[in-house]
Design a protein around this nucleic acid. Structure first.
Length: 457
RNA sequence: GUCCCGUUCGUCUAGUCAGGCCUAGGACACCGGGUUUUCAUCCCGGCAACAGGGGUUCGAAUCCCCUACGGGACGCCA
């Protein structure tokens, strides 16, 4: 039995940031690795930004990534409620403890937390004014990622605003105590807050949890950490763009954590098994959309055909290429020959669209390439006029037919292939030609070739 | 400005804690070749890094110090 309790404590802001998602992921991985409990706590004290919709985006994102929580919204636990907006009485109770201990005072209507130590006054270059400082004892944390970090807080800080609401540092610590959180895994941007939090833990007579400050995700180019405006920063966009959640999750695992051998594509169970603090890096990681796309492509190509089919079907329906009455066997055949060429699901309408419509566009670049030397249409006419001789329309028989044709008239196969591909698909790429022709079927190929001849003549 | 954290190919990283096994490994990207007589797949090859300077040591990517650079925090935001 494990006693580990970790939490992810997002505040709903209307989007699910990739950095938050990775923090959630690392907490989740650690909980699953240790057999501990993963708590989802919603920090919704900022009333302005917290709407029902914002919460939904967050929960959807968590579910999409497969990060299930053991306690939190919709999942009852012994430490609820899990919305900070519903915990005001708990905060009042804890505030009273500090007040009774003489660790608070009021100024300008706000309640401050009083540090212990020698007080003095100093000009603050940052705030450009004289402020009261405190020589407090340094708080030493034994960070699981960074090792020993020592920092002294030097100013009293607000714990309740003048409007009566508690601030982040206060609720965060109180909830961690009240919810029995044992390990706090969060972004490095909180490292400097940790001395504040330790002061509070100690003032409450509680031993601080184990801290692990994970590196931040930096924008792919330019300075600074990833912000919501950067390309690829929002989890909901990946869902929108038909990324596979497992691929996104796999990539996120690799940003700031390493299994230490050269493995990259890993099943989630294996990652859970191998995930631990010593695999977490100290340096920040720069986001790389190309690598993300690469891992997504690997996942797509490994997908079982049935799974691929139900993922792709709505995409094609949406783009108007397919409807519910479409031929299921044909659809599966198309996917079977095309899967190895796929790199992204949202580009599928352009990659395999021609399988589903007779009104496919002819790519200009390919057209000029094919028509550069001589008139290849003759070849199409020739093939069309003799293709009735092919009984079974399979890769093998079509291949044999071309061999035969070549032997008779002296043309090489490659003098037929490009133009025939172009004629039946309008593109210069795609699956291997012969299997593709087989899937399209004799009738479709024949009528497309006829149309093509009319179109280009 | 003050405090905290960091720094290995363009990028993610292995190697650092326990100094010799490192001629520094893998992956993405890029470049070249091949397969596929197509391509956005696949295979092979190539390019490319220990931030700089001082120490310690027989020996330093690895330990120590300094500098530079990067990141973060310094809110009655979270």
């Amino acid at each position: 039995m494990s006693s580990v309790r970790v939490r992810f404590a997002p505040s709903p802001t209307g989007f699910f940031h990739i950095g938050s998602a990775r923090t959630a992921l690392f907490n989740w991985l650690y909980a699953r690795h240790t057999g501990g409990v993963f708590v989802l706590r919603i920090e919704d004290t900022d009333k302005e930004r917290n709407t029902e919709e914002s919460l939904q985006i967050l929960l959807d994102g968590m579910k999409w990534l497969g990060l299930d929580w053991d306690e939190g919204p919709d999942v009852n636990g012994d430490y609820g409620p899990y919305f900070q907006s519903q915990r005001t009485s708990i905060y009042q109770e804890y505030l009273k403890k500090l007040q009774d201990a003489g660790r608070t005072y009021e100024r300008d209507g706000a309640i401050f937390f009083r540090l212990e130590g020698e007080r003095y006054s100093e000009f603050d270059d940052y705030k450009k004014c004289e402020i009261e400082k405190v020589r407090a004892a340094p708080q030493v944390i034994d960070d699981k990622v960074r090792g020993r970090v020592e920092r002294a807080e030097e100013k009293d800080f607000v714990i309740f605003r003048s409007n009566g609401e508690p601030v982040f540092h206060f609720v965060n610590v109180v909830d961690d105590i009240a919810m029995g959180i044992t390990h706090v895994i969060r972004g490095e941007d909180h490292l400097s807050n940790t001395s504040k939090h330790c002061e509070l833990f100690r003032a409450f007579g509680a031993e601080p949890p184990v801290f692990a400050h994970i590196p931040l995700i930096l924008k792919s180019s330019g300075p600074g950490k990833m912000s919501k405006r950067d390309e690829g920063a929002l989890i909901e966009d990946y869902e929108q763009n038909c990324y596979l959640p497992g691929a996104v999750r796999n990539y996120l695992c690799l940003l700031g954590w390493s299994p230490k051998d050269d493995q990259e594509i890993m099943a989630i169970d294996e990652i859970i098994d191998r995930f631990d603090f010593d695999g977490i890096n100290q340096g920040n990681a720069r986001f790389d959309e190309k690598k993300m796309a690469h891992i997504n492509a690997e996942y797509i190509r490994q997908l079982p055909l049935e799974t691929l089919a139900w993922m792709v079907s709505p995409i094609l329906v949406k783009s108007g290429l397919m409807d519910t009455s479409s031929d299921e066997d044909y659809f599966q055949d198309v996917l079977r020959v095309s899967q190895e060429k796929m790199t992204a699901l949202n580009t599928l309408p352009s990659l395999i669209g021609y399988f589903f419509t007779e009104d496919y566009p002819l790519d200009d670049k390919t057209r000029s390439r094919i028509f550069k030397k001589g008139d290849p249409v003759d070849r199409v006419i020739e093939f069309l006029s003799t293709m009735d001789g092919v009984d079974e329309f399979t890769s093998e028989s079509i291949d044999a037919f071309f061999e035969d044709l070549s032997a008779r008239n002296g043309f090489k196969k490659f003098e037929y292939f490009p133009v025939i591909r172009f004629a039946v698909s309008g593109t210069g790429g795609g699956p291997e030609l012969l299997p593709m022709l087989e899937v399209l079927g004799k009738d479709r190929v024949k009528s497309r070739l006829e149309c093509f001849i009319k179109k280009v003549s």
